[in-house]
Amino acid sequence: MMKYPLFETENCLLTEIDYEKDLETDSLFTQDLRYARYWCKGIVKPLSKNEMKKTYEKLEKKADESRNKFHFAVRSKVDSQLIGYARFDWVFWNDQCGEIKVAIGHPEYLGKVEQELIEKLTYYGFHELNLHRIDCYISQFEEELDLSLKKVGYLREAIFREAEFFNNKYWDRYVYGILRPSWSQKLEA
């Protein structure tokens, strides 16, 4: 009956946070400020192991209390090492809408696993969370996500012009969305 595993893609596993192993790896990943952006709510900066621990704890507490956040540490299927994360950042239950985030910190996997992770989160959103629409906000410079979202069937619905400043330049912020009917059509095809 449940024919598709929810927490597994072709190359990745979607798992819980491992406080023993992930702190050091994720802290190292944030040395790349492009990845740090996915963890820092305020000032973008590399996070120490202790700051990372506090960030995990805050995230898990919020997810537990609000029940509208679903976070997965993404690992390689080959050796279980941490790659990044995949997350429903929020869900509006009354409107059946949710927003996904995919963050790749491991340089070898950047540009290689985004599409399968977006596909899996989208599947999870429509078939487990029972949503009507799913959003994804990305920056203009995140070309790998831009391409992957289009391939999965998301439409670019809005452009916040010059809404972000990074690397000495203003960038547009794109909002992508997919509705349940178009996802179902894609599955049938």
Partner: peptide
């Protein structure tokens, strides 16, 4: 303000 897009069927 300029129109910058619309999220289809966002609200129920």
């Amino acid at each position: 303000f300029q129109h910058e897009g619309r999220l289809r069927e966002f609200l129920s």
